[in-house]
């Protein structure tokens, strides 16, 4: 099995430029609020919802777009599964790193304009400069979102409208990821905790996050392992 150099590079490249553009946009909005309103909390925290959805759709595209491409270029489903797993396993911490960097850029901005970078919601971290915890929380969350996207993308690719049945499972993966970080976010259904009572702790969060990621990959593999390529589009 080869290391997925180009698949990873292509996705990291797009992620980096999307993050840079998004960061500029958030900074502009932050300054607008500062000059024309009342800036009392971290804007980057509020902006954190969109990247989760982007990561989910990266997961969808991973199967919908790259599975047919890889098979049409002579790869097996097993080879694709391996390369997609490695790519997503490295892509999610990369995006988490970018999110962590976003907080640091914001800290510099808030220091310059003399505003408090306070957080609205509970997180693993209590201050945006606690980079390891910020990184861990985002990594665990993104791992859940990307595997949810891959699983649902695989379901819709294979069964088309029947893929609707994979949505509850995909939502379950996201909720499991949110449960792993032990916090509630403004995500639909995230208030549902699956009954887990997880004591705060990065090690348990990491274990739970990796478990969710592995579960999502296994579910995705169960769909794509013998999926036929569609005859049209």
């Amino acid at each position: 099995m080869r290391f997925p150099t180009r698949l990873l590079a292509a996705n990291l490249w797009v992620a980096f430029f999307a993050w840079a553009a998004y960061l500029v946009l958030v900074i502009v909005i932050t300054l607008a609020i500062h000059f024309f309103g009342n800036l009392t909390q971290s804007a980057w925290e509020q902006a954190g919802q969109l990247p989760r959805w982007v990561v989910l759709f990266v997961g969808v595209a991973m199967v919908r777009q790259f599975l047919p491409l890889f098979i049409a270029n002579g790869q097996t489903r097993r080879q694709f599964g391996f390369q997609a797993a490695i790519t997503t396993a490295l892509y999610t911490p990369f995006v988490a790193l970018l999110m962590s960097a976003g907080y640091l850029v914001e800290r510099v901005l808030y220091t310059i304009i003399d505003r408090p970078q306070s957080l609205e919601r509970a997180h693993l971290y209590t201050d945006p400069t606690q980079v390891p915890l910020v990184f861990l929380e985002h990594t665990v969350e993104f791992m859940a979102w990307i595997t949810a996207g891959m699983f649902m993308g695989a379901g819709f690719y294979r069964w088309q409208a029947g893929g609707l049945l994979t949505i509850p499972v995909g939502v379950g993966l996201v909720v499991l990821g949110l449960s792993a970080v032990g916090a509630r976010f403004g995500v639909p259904m995230s208030g549902f905790s699956l009954g887990f009572r997880i004591p705060a702790g990065p090690v348990l969060t990491l274990v739970m996050g990796l478990g969710t990621f592995a579960l999502g990959l296994l579910l995705t593999w169960s769909v794509i392992r013998d999926t036929p390529l569609r005859n049209g589009g």
Partner: peptide, 28 residues
């Protein structure tokens, strides 16, 4: 993989090229 890597099927469905730009398709 020893066999599939030796086989190329090009269909009208375009799965081997439908990825961003032409350069992207050739890149992969």
């Amino acid at each position: 993989p020893a066999v599939t890597s030796a086989v190329s099927l090009i269909r009208d469905a375009g799965e081997s090229v439908d990825l961003g730009t032409a350069a992207d398709a050739l890149y992969f």
